[in-house]
Simulated assay, not measured.
Amino acid sequence: MSTSSSIAKQQETEVRNGSTKPNLKPVNPKPQLRQKKIKKILQNWQLYLFVLPSFLYFIIFHYIPMYGLQIAFKDFIPALGIWGSEWVGFEHFIRFFESYYFWDLLKNTLVINLYELVVGFPLPIILALLLNEVKDGIYKRSVQTVTYAPHFISVVVMAGMIIAFLSPATGIINHFIEFLGFEPIRFLADPDWFKSVFVLSGVWQNTGWGTIIYLAALAGVDMQQHEAAIVDGATRLQRIWYINIPALVPTMIILLILNIGNFLAVGFEKILLLQNPLNLESSNVIATFVYTSGLLEAQYSFAAAVGLFNAVINAALLIAVNQIAKKRSETSLW
């Protein structure tokens, strides 16, 4: 008998007699899981390389700048730097809340966003349902091209077109109004018209593009459901109501949550380009106020405080709406 086998038998006998305890130390699975993850990353390195630019974008332009949020709680002086500036706590927030323009800014921001949500959110759904009922052909492709095209117009060009179309002297809209026998309207000089101009021009620009997501959702509807409904005698309207719309509900909920998450982040660039002293009463929102205070008036800490207030409200609305959607349905962001 070999020496190794005799040693093994001796150890086995000791374990049985209780003189020694077997080595029952649990194996740590973490290193094995880590190795599997590393192996999977190396196998799919092309996918991770593809995602890398987006990852770096959010890190560099969204997460790293969060370091500067502390100036909202300081009396920031560029010469002293962030750490050298005096800490003032919530002074800038209190100043904003107690200012005479706080409620005007909040009202304008909320009204424009509610107006845009009520008018702009259902229209892509309606257009997608209509296009889905049209047979594929020249007419359908032409309608899609015409409705999608405005989305690719830049904000600056879009603002220039709006100003040109609504000009009381040379604008095509006012020429048509005069043709009907009415007086020309100074759309961008009247605060009562600004919100409608902003929202309806946005609807014109983005409705067609928004239908793409809903058309993709409708493409996943099982045609056997429609065939069974036709056999049962369902009309086209009934099939839309009981088959197509329920298929769109999860997509509608997700997009609604995302829209609510940007509720107070109304389109800053377009408002700024259409804004003038005559419509300022209706066009001045939180985003434009932050720009004016921070960049034009160099009130960096005050503007940061207002912007942080805006971001916190958006985050709270996003979480609240997501929780409501999660309780009412099975669809939510998390």
Rank of each mutant, 00 (worst) to 15 (best):
81 G>Q: 09
109 T>K: 10
70 Q>I: 02
66 M>K: 07
56 L>M: 07
110 L>Y: 06
69 L>N: 08
52 L>A: 10
111 V>K: 07
32 Q>R: 01
55 F>W: 02
40 K>N: 15
94 I>M: 14
97 F>G: 03
104 D>A: 04
32 Q>A: 01
108 N>I: 00
72 A>R: 03
88 V>M: 12
46 Q>L: 07
109 T>S: 11
46 Q>E: 08
114 L>D: 01
85 S>D: 15
78 P>L: 05
91 E>P: 03
32 Q>G: 00
87 W>A: 14
100 Y>L: 06
66 M>A: 05
65 P>T: 13
34 R>G: 10
68 G>H: 09
81 G>D: 11
57 Y>T: 10
39 K>E: 14
113 N>F: 00
32 Q>Y: 00
51 V>H: 05
47 L>S: 08
80 L>V: 03
70 Q>G: 04
68 G>L: 09
71 I>G: 03
78 P>H: 05
49 L>Q: 10
37 K>M: 04
53 P>C: 01
36 K>M: 07
85 S>W: 13
100 Y>T: 10
92 H>D: 14
37 K>F: 06
52 L>G: 06
72 A>F: 00
83 W>G: 13
61 F>E: 12
31 P>M: 01
99 S>A: 02
63 Y>D: 07
110 L>I: 12
88 V>D: 15
76 F>S: 10
100 Y>C: 04
59 I>T: 09
56 L>T: 06
99 S>P: 00
91 E>A: 15
69 L>K: 02
53 P>H: 03
33 L>N: 01
95 R>F: 02
82 I>Y: 07
37 K>E: 05
111 V>N: 05
43 Q>Y: 13
63 Y>N: 06
96 F>Y: 08
92 H>T: 12
74 K>I: 01
56 L>F: 02
32 Q>D: 02
62 H>F: 07
35 Q>R: 03
69 L>R: 03
91 E>N: 11
106 L>D: 01
94 I>K: 15
87 W>S: 13
110 L>Q: 04
59 I>Y: 11
71 I>D: 03
90 F>E: 14
86 E>L: 15
64 I>R: 13
82 I>K: 08
84 G>R: 10
41 I>G: 15
67 Y>G: 06
61 F>I: 04
32 Q>L: 01
32 Q>F: 00
110 L>C: 10
49 L>W: 08
113 N>E: 08
89 G>T: 10
50 F>C: 10
52 L>F: 06
35 Q>S: 08
46 Q>A: 04
37 K>L: 05
81 G>F: 06
38 I>R: 07
43 Q>N: 12
63 Y>I: 15
79 A>F: 00
105 L>A: 02
105 L>W: 04
45 W>D: 09
79 A>D: 03
80 L>P: 02
89 G>A: 15
58 F>L: 14
98 E>I: 07
